[in-house]
Design a protein around this nucleic acid. Structure first.
Lengths: 194, 194
DNA sequence: CCTACCGATCGGTAGG
DNA sequence: CCTACCGATCGGTAGG
């Protein structure tokens, strides 16, 4: 059991790396097996299917974002501070789990229909929460007035490239990027402070 | 011959749309054939291979960016105006050819080795040109001082989501987004004007 | 542009 | 965890 659990984790980790590098569809069970060091059919002693791997990577990642969002929503931070915390959330996950995040960002469309549906629902809810912070901040003149949707995409995409580079980045280099990204977003949103 | 040319264009257009929707690897020649309305094997009267389609989409798109970059580099605009022109370039291509741009952005890694090598070289050259404008602008204090690399990624990713939505967007809606994106970037780069 | 077809490779199963 | 194997599907070719 313990051994099997380790194997399972290993399979997931190897698969996430491979999916990140080649994409989900182009990654084969034979590739994964070879990287793990077992025969392809042996994978099925630990996992149910290739799709199951994708489903788990995506839903684990979604949960991490959701939990972060919950903490931030329930905090008594100002809206600018909430946005800053969201940037931190994205950067930390991207730095600590670059493979999972890349799969989450780029491979979700290959989820089977039911999971895809759930995924998109969760993603829409996350986006709605993010926008509610932006909207509230604009109403209170904490941010410059602009389209919530545009602001959302601008902020999220200011952060959405780190995971491609985080494997080549030290913690110190990340912190430098973090500051620059935050300043850029703060100025972009029209904050005088910081 | 004329008929054949139209068919070829049609195949490329259909393939680009499908690659955008499903990804290159998950799109089959049978899918493309069905959308065109011919038998799968008939595709090969007009094209050489599936890879050839990807190669052409990517290189056409790369050329469009390169030509835009050349015009901007050889203009006598100020650096902020050059950045603004680059933003326009990206937005216009994203709006007018959303399928090609998506394939160019997300599917290039499936290029065969030689073409992949060429692609990455071109992409690096483009990035170097982009950064040279940023560097020059920082030296002249037209922009706030920051890492060229970070600035590059922040600007490019402020624009790199439009192509996912441009099919649902009218020209007027694009122009609104364009303004907001430009303001955001201008403020992010520390420009007082605009 | 079609009919007919092929070798390669895929995800996955049976049985131990 | 392995050996042996399978049906489905892939990109592509031969020949007309």
């Amino acid at each position: 059991m313990k051994h099997s659990k380790n194997r399972k984790d290993e399979i997931y980790a190897v698969a996430a790396k491979l999916f990140r590098k080649r994409g989900y569809v182009a990654s084969t069970m034979r590739d994964i097996a070879e990287l793990v060091g077992i025969e392809p059919s042996s994978l099925y002693s630990h996992i149910k299917s290739k799709e199951e791997i994708l489903i788990n990577i995506c839903s684990n990642c979604a949960n991490e974002f959701d939990e972060g969002m919950d903490v931030i929503l329930n905090s008594n931070k100002t809206n600018p501070k909430k946005v800053e915390a969201l940037v931190d959330l994205h950067l930390d996950i991207a730095y600590n789990k670059p493979s999972s995040v890349t799969v989450f960002n780029d491979e979700w469309r290959h989820l089977p229909e039911k999971d895809l549906h759930l995924f998109l629902e969760k993603r829409n809810a996350y986006e709605a929460n993010f926008k509610s912070i932006l909207r509230d901040g604009m109403h209170k003149s904490e941010f410059i007035e602009m389209s919530e949707s545009t602001a959302f995409h601008l902020i999220i995409n200011s952060v959405k490239w780190i995971h491609y580079y985080s494997k080549k980045m030290t913690q110190d280099q990340l912190e430098l990027k973090r500051k620059e990204i935050k300043y850029f977003i703060s100025r972009g949103l029209g904050l005088k402070t910081n």
